[in-house]
Design a binder for these strands. Structure first.
Lengths: 253, 253
DNA sequence: GAGTGGTCTAGACCACCCG
DNA sequence: GGGTGGTCTAGACCACTCA
């Protein structure tokens, strides 16, 4: 990485800096390598630390860098491909589903969720929490909403249940015939709670995937999953090793 | 919106501010309404302007606010659902495809694209640019890469072609039997060029959708589409009016 | 305790929009 | 020309990690 000062250009400094750093990452650094600290880098490029941080933020958003307080800034590995949808629709918890059960509560749900489920605001809904890991890292957290009416065989409980309870809910769900599902993907920010699970700061960018499951002519369950946007690439269909970055700067592995 | 100062809490000020503003947006503002300017808001909450801006940035990332230089900060409408995948796989430009042709060049492509296409680095590839509008706004820009070998009937041109040329390429593509496709979705930042098309600043968050089209046992084309992350919600399957926000604070329309 | 990134401040100037 | 958000500076202190 050169010691060069930035020459005068019309584009914002932080954007030019991002480009310079991006090229340096391509040519002079390898995955896992630690960059000089922010104060050092800022001095080297002759900018304020805040400006440098703006450039680093961009690169982190693109999944090129990983920054950890007390540790430093390192070159991030390529994003992990996470299969969101493979072939046929299937219930959560079906064989081959890699999500790990966490816990399960029941009670009322937020109005927006109730509306999507088509249930009354005070109707009992099972709320299942699960998480998904890849390469030893948690990459996604999920809230699965299952109206009690969808799993009538299930006996009520008063206290939060653990993984066993989660499995019981999912088992009941499998008994229904899945008539279809649809999904929506959008950008969101991690709630404080999810951020903790995902080992990120509150407000970290996440990809929110909302899935509706249909059975018996109605919405039998809704899943809201938040994936770490910095480390994940969501795949649909047979997508295996798609590895394109828009500006084409990045090496293929 | 209260004139209240922020009380002492352990969470970062900008995050608490985000929450306060978010609730104010839910209860005291309607879509399109203009917020007080940043200096005014910062003074009202007793924080520096930079801190306030950090909170506004979060809300903009969540699609709750829209900020325009010289104009002001307004309450954003709900995100637009954009159908990325409906039923069966289909070629770009097939009937029902709402993408607008822009222009078309040919020549070498970035190494990463060539690798995905499975062509040599110097092989001729048609690069088609298209854009997608919804409600009078451009919401996505696409680069479609079609190796010359996939459309052998097409005569070569030396200069960039317009929409007519784009249609010719797409027409040739339709003649192939589409054997399958897969997709990947990830977070990216808008290149300067795309940012201009999308009416955003460079580095604006975008959802990058990479699609591979298979024909004759190989990858016949690759599309890289960038959607405005602030205004778009990508839908897969029959998803119509899914409208859930993770923390459930938001009203359903 | 030394070093890292994260938060926050109080200013300045610039680019852009609109009346 | 006046008002908006966007960029940038030069500092300070804090929270966290690790030897």
């Amino acid at each position: 990485m050169g010691t060069t000062q930035l020459e005068a250009v019309s584009e914002p400094k932080y954007w030019h800096l991002r480009t310079v750093l991006s090229q340096a990452l391509d040519t002079e650094f390898s995955v896992g390598e630690v960059l000089p600290n922010e104060r050092e880098l800022a001095a080297r490029f002759g900018v304020a630390r805040a400006t440098l941080r703006q450039a680093l933020e961009q690169l982190e958003l693109e999944g090129r860098l990983r920054r950890r307080r007390g540790v430093g800034t390192t070159v991030a590995p390529p994003r992990v491909g996470v299969a969101v949808e493979t072939e046929r629709p299937s219930w959560p918890g079906a064989p081959g589903d890699a999500w790990q059960p966490a816990d399960c509560t029941q009670g009322a749900v937020p109005a927006a969720v109730a509306a999507t489920l088509g249930v009354a605001g005070d109707e009992t809904v099972h709320t299942v929490r699960r998480s998904l890991s890849a390469h030893g890292q948690i990459v996604a957290a999920e809230l699965l909403y299952v109206p009690a009416a969808s799993v009538p065989e299930l006996t009520a409980i008063d206290v939060p249940g653990g993984p066993a309870r989660v499995r019981a809910v999912l088992r009941e769900l499998q008994r229904l015939t899945l008539e279809g599902q649809d999904r929506a993907v959008e950008l969101g920010t991690a709630r404080a709670e999810d951020a903790k699970d995902l080992d990120r700061l509150p407000g970290a960018p996440v990809l929110m995937v909302t899935t509706r499951f249909f059975a018996r002519g109605r919405t039998a369950a809704v899943s809201v999953a938040t994936y770490r946007a910095d480390t994940c690439r969501l795949t649909f269909g047979a997508a295996g090793d798609v590895r394109i970055v828009h500006d084409g700067q990045r090496q293929v592995s």
